[in-house]
């Protein structure tokens, strides 16, 4: 399970309004944990690392959460730098969170590198009785932005792997995007003698 520094590293961001379920999805996918009580945004890590194999080839995913900076919409340009993929999350039981997605798409499209893969996720599909956003509406919004879509439940584990597997699949199909992270020529290392500087390109 130890990270293999030589694996190709993909930087994938989670964005979307507060309370949409970004951290819950990330924690369910990475740690297979779910805390229904927790409603606070931050998970307190710079990024989570997960090794994922797609079509027999392994990748190292650096998964970044908003660290609460979505609350007042203060995500910085630097958050988006070098990201290969962006997962946009809304809550199917909260119509406002769905209506906010247009602005989140706009922010992601104007800040992420050209060609970065977007992926739309409707979360909390277990809350079917409280649903205020139809599945078709999610599909339609995703189509409009030319990206893939699914609904997930971090509580019941339904579909939690799907967004990650499918976005990685889409990223690795685009060699130009994949190579974009190895563009670090012309940069210099400032870490001096300290080891372990080779890996992270995010």
């Amino acid at each position: 399970m130890a990270s293999d520094e030589s694996l190709p590293t993909l930087k994938i961001l989670m964005i979307g309004p507060s309370g949409a379920g970004k951290s819950a999805l990330l924690i369910r996918y990475c740690d297979d944990q779910f805390d229904s009580e927790s409603s606070t945004a931050t998970i307190g890590v710079d990024f989570k690392v997960k090794k994922l194999s797609v079509h027999g080839k392994a990748y190292r995913l650096n998964l970044l959460d908003t660290a609460g900076q979505e609350r007042f919409r203060t995500l910085s340009n630097s958050y988006y730098r070098g990201a290969h993929g962006v997962i946009l999350v809304y809550d199917i039981s909260n119509r406002e969170s769905f209506l906010a997605m247009e602005r989140w798409f706009e922010e992601a499209e104007s800040n992420a590198m050209p060609g970065a893969v977007m992926y739309l996720v409707g979360s909390k599909m277990d809350k079917s009785s409280g649903r205020t956003v139809k599945t078709e509406e999610g599909i339609e919004l995703a189509e409009r932005h030319g990206c893939q879509f699914c609904e997930v439940s971090s509580k019941t584990r339904d579909n939690v792997r799907k967004p990650f597997v499918e976005i990685v699949d889409a990223i690795v199909k685009d060699p130009k995007l994949l190579n974009a992270s190895s563009r670090r020529s012309g940069t210099v290392s400032v870490a001096g003698g300290s080891s372990g500087d080779s890996g992270c390109a995010c």
Binding site: S3, D31, V45, V49, K50, L52, S53
Partner: peptide, 11 residues
């Protein structure tokens, strides 16, 4: 460094 290192995910 605060990184959450987690299990491998095989397809």
């Amino acid at each position: 460094e605060r990184t959450g290192m987690t299990d491998e995910d095989d397809d």
